[in-house]
Amino acid sequence: MKKNDWFLAAGIVIAAAVILLLQIFGSVQNGLTVTVSVDGSLYGTYSLSEDRQVEINDTNRIVIENGSVVMEWADCPDQLCVNHRSISRDGESIICLPNRVVVSIEGTDGKNEENSLDGIAG
């Protein structure tokens, strides 16, 4: 193993840590909403603090409970979204690629949206 290999590995770890920190500190925890979009267009927004179930086009079902969201059921073959851990923080998302369903948590104000995008770009 060459010295350069270690530099490469260290660089990647640092890059990941910086992006993660930007994501954590660029996020807000209160007044979050759950946004569901299908095929790139908005399907609906729901409050994270209100417990409920949402059916998405007969292909997916999410459950909002105790301030977190899980994909309870999906008809896709890989079931990656169903196995995904629950999400509760700003910017987190569960994505069902086969059905093109994106469930994400966002701040209620537009300013927050920009912040998280900056976090990703950084």
Partner: peptide, 27 residues
């Protein structure tokens, strides 16, 4: 490709995890 397919930058949230995962599996 996932970003293009679902038309959202939200998937960028996975970037740190995917970087580390790629590092470990690649090594």
């Amino acid at each position: 490709v996932a970003m293009i397919a679902v038309q959202t930058y939200r998937v960028g949230y996975y970037l740190p995890v995917l970087l580390i995962a790629g590092l470990l599996t690649g090594a």
